[in-house]
Simulated assay, not measured.
Amino acid sequence: MQEQDYDAELDARGLFCPEPVMMLHNRIVEISPGAVLKVVATDPSTTRDIPRFCQFLDHELVDSGEDGKEFVFYIRRGS
């Protein structure tokens, strides 16, 4: 995974399911459609939950990966 350009960031480190996805749901509506949100989390369940969140709510998961013990996601907000 390479560092991507992004418009906003959500720090969900130290939070556990379902908190990271709940925070993501609240944060994604604060950015414009087409903008990219970077999410950093430490809960391994986010590797399952965030892609599903994007799929169900029509957002694009631009990239994701693991950086040490952190999981990083780049999400482009859908319309």
Results as ranks from 00 to 15, higher is better:
32 S>I: 02
78 G>F: 05
38 K>V: 06
54 C>Q: 08
9 E>V: 10
34 G>F: 10
34 G>W: 09
49 D>L: 14
2 Q>P: 09
74 Y>I: 00
29 V>F: 08
75 I>Y: 03
10 L>W: 06
29 V>H: 08
79 S>E: 14
67 D>L: 12
48 R>P: 00
19 E>M: 11
24 L>T: 09
69 K>P: 00
19 E>I: 07
63 D>I: 07
42 T>W: 03
60 E>M: 07
52 R>Q: 08
69 K>H: 13
28 I>C: 04
33 P>N: 01
45 S>C: 10
29 V>K: 11
8 A>E: 10
10 L>V: 10
38 K>N: 04
62 V>D: 01
79 S>C: 04
31 I>E: 03
28 I>E: 02
43 D>E: 12
46 T>D: 08
42 T>R: 09
34 G>C: 10
1 M>N: 06
40 V>S: 11
76 R>G: 00
72 V>I: 15
70 E>H: 15
34 G>S: 09
77 R>P: 05
61 L>S: 06
55 Q>R: 14
54 C>G: 08
62 V>E: 03
2 Q>I: 09
11 D>Q: 13
59 H>T: 03
33 P>H: 00
1 M>D: 04
18 P>S: 05
16 F>T: 14
56 F>S: 04
68 G>A: 09
66 E>T: 15
7 D>T: 13
21 V>Y: 01
79 S>N: 12
24 L>C: 09
64 S>T: 11
6 Y>W: 15
49 D>M: 14
45 S>Q: 13
54 C>L: 11
5 D>V: 05
70 E>D: 15
7 D>I: 06
14 G>K: 05
79 S>Y: 02
31 I>H: 03
51 P>T: 04
37 L>F: 05
13 R>H: 07
37 L>G: 01
16 F>Q: 10
52 R>V: 10
37 L>E: 05
42 T>C: 10
20 P>S: 13
22 M>Y: 05
77 R>D: 04
25 H>P: 00
64 S>H: 11
57 L>P: 00
43 D>G: 07
50 I>Q: 01
55 Q>I: 06
2 Q>Y: 06
69 K>D: 14
78 G>Q: 09
28 I>F: 02
49 D>H: 13
39 V>A: 06
35 A>R: 07
49 D>Q: 14
46 T>F: 04
1 M>V: 08
6 Y>C: 01
